[in-house]
């Protein structure tokens, strides 16, 4: 990796909202390049480590998955507050993706098909479902988008290189972009 602004590491946070974790797995598909990545990137809150709350501002946030329930919205807003640059990663975050296939079906129907009348799980510990699935940029401002289901590892690597160098994602070569 080259073109760093300084020797300080970029602080990176990641999350999966209503995603399948495929985008995170695709990130791990950078394989041995992760050994180089950890020299220039420090992970903050992320499912791959045990940091469960933000304690500081992060340089870059990667969000996988759209917003399906109230908890997703809370986490997304938390990410917006704590990340200088916030990127939507993958089809679900950008278009709603597979979970958005439920858009247009009344939430009551989704529940009634799963649980007998009067037994729909309801507890303060489990979040409420939104009326439909929302792509992330409909909830908070998003600074960049990486398409794909999942985005190819080479695309994520290219994007990380740009971000570490302080460049914009508009410089992506696009040869690694796929929509499926």
């Amino acid at each position: 990796m080259s073109g760093q602004r300084s020797n300080k590491k970029i602080i990176l946070a990641t999350t999966s909202l209503a995603g399948c974790f495929g985008c995170h797995m695709s990130l791990l598909d950078i394989d041995e390049r992760i050994l180089k990545l950890v020299e220039v990137v420090e992970f903050d809150k992320s499912p791959i480590d045990d940091i469960k709350e933000f304690s500081r501002m992060c340089d870059v946030g990667l969000v996988e998955g759209g917003c399906c329930n109230s908890e997703n919205v809370r986490v997304l807003r938390d990410f917006r507050r704590h990340c200088k640059i916030l990127i939507s990663v993958g089809a679900c975050a950008i278009t709603g993706g597979l979970p958005a296939m439920r858009n247009g079906i009344p939430v009551s129907e989704l529940f009634e098909a799963a649980f007998p009348a009067g037994s729909i799980p309801n507890d303060e510990e489990i979040p409420m479902l939104l009326d439909r699935v929302y792509p992330c940029h409909e909830i908070v401002k998003i600074d960049g988008f990486l398409p794909g289901c999942p985005p190819r590892a080479d695309l994520l690597w290219e994007a990380l290189n740009l971000l570490v160098a302080g460049k914009s994602l508009s410089e992506l070569s696009f040869e690694n972009v796929r929509y499926d």
């Binding site: 439920r102 989704l110 098909a113 799963a114």
Partner: peptide
């Protein structure tokens, strides 16, 4: 904490 309703849609 998640529910998708997959088998319906």
């Amino acid at each position: 904490v998640e529910f998708r309703g997959f088998e319906r849609f």
